[in-house]
């Protein structure tokens, strides 16, 4: 028991655990729609595109969060804008824009000759979360959950039958851009925990795991939240006790839960 309670004597661990729970809930709820709307690749693209904004903000002495948010939003809208051109397929713009943004980030790092915080940007450091970061994470999470609650039924229809949604007058472009905007903000929240490279896993894997277990949307979100929070907490403790990368530990915990659930489900199908 002491193994679990001992780290909580430190304020940075308390902040990390709180951030873990909030981030887990956020990624699970939005990630459910990302998975069900087949947007995992877009999520992957956005996570990689945050790097130049973070590096630029770091070099200019500004907020890394705001830099990341600006870069991911530029990417989200860039993908949406380019995809409107008939000659540029959507998967082409999804493949192109984030790669260019990532290259720009690497260029800025090499130009600034500052490799010190590169690891934290790429792979996250949940133990390094400040009170200010925590407030921003809570704010973004609150706004995203409100958005999901307000537009829940329209988002469901967008996933299952976008043509019908459009036919009854729902402005699909607005809904799609809204989803991309909040996806970009969620990526920013996830970056502090698992970094730019691994955030997409936190969005996608818990929701994909939950989907294996249930056919009910609400339950998918709930289970995804449980899996995400457990994974992030596992990352906090592994990082604390073994001084390992928290981001990598979180993603591997997500993957471990997925594999266990997948195997259990496969065994159930085989024997029953």
């Amino acid at each position: 028991m002491n193994f679990i309670t001992e780290p909580f004597q430190y304020a940075f661990i308390q902040r990390a655990v709180l951030a873990a729970v909030i981030t887990g809930v956020l990624c699970a709820c939005l990630g459910t729609f990302v998975v069900l709307r087949r947007m995992s690749v877009v999520g992957h693209a956005l996570t990689h595109s945050a790097l130049p904004g973070m590096v630029a903000a770091y070099l200019l002495g500004g907020s890394i969060f705001i830099g990341a948010a600006a870069a991911t939003m530029i990417t989200a809208f860039g993908i949406g804008f380019l995809s409107k051109d008939d000659k540029v397929y959507e998967d082409t713009s999804v493949g192109m824009v984030p790669t260019v943004m990532f290259a720009l980030g690497v260029l800025l790092i090499s130009a600034g000759k500052s490799y010190r915080d590169l690891s934290a940007m790429l792979f996250g450091n949940i133990l390094g979360i400040t009170s200010g970061d925590l407030k921003l994470i809570a704010l973004i999470t609150g706004a995203t959950l409100l958005m999901l609650a307000f537009f829940y039924k329209e988002l469901k229809l967008l996933c299952i039958d976008p043509d019908y949604a459009k036919a009854i007058g729902i402005p699909l472009h607005m809904l799609r851009y809204g989803l991309l905007l909040f996806l970009a903000l969620t990526v920013v929240v996830g970056i502090q925990s698992v970094g730019t490279v691994l955030t997409n896993a936190l969005l996608v894997v818990p929701a994909a795991t939950a989907r294996l277990l249930t056919d009910r949307l609400g339950t998918v979100m709930l289970l995804a939240g449980v899996f995400a929070v457990l994974s992030v907490l596992a990352g906090v403790f592994v990082s604390y006790y073994f001084s390992l990368s928290s981001g990598a530990a979180i993603v591997l915990a997500c993957a471990l839960i997925f594999v266990c659930v997948w195997l259990a489900r496969a065994a159930k199908v085989k024997f029953y």
Binding site: F151, I160, I168, R211, L217, V220
Partner: peptide, 23 residues
């Protein structure tokens, strides 16, 4: 239609009422 989406039959039929409900 994405028939793999986790939704019940009643929920899908209810989407026919959305145009009257609005936001």
């Amino acid at each position: 239609i994405d028939w793999h989406f986790p939704m019940s039959v009643l929920e899908l039929v209810l989407t026919g009422r959305y145009v009257y409900l609005g936001w």
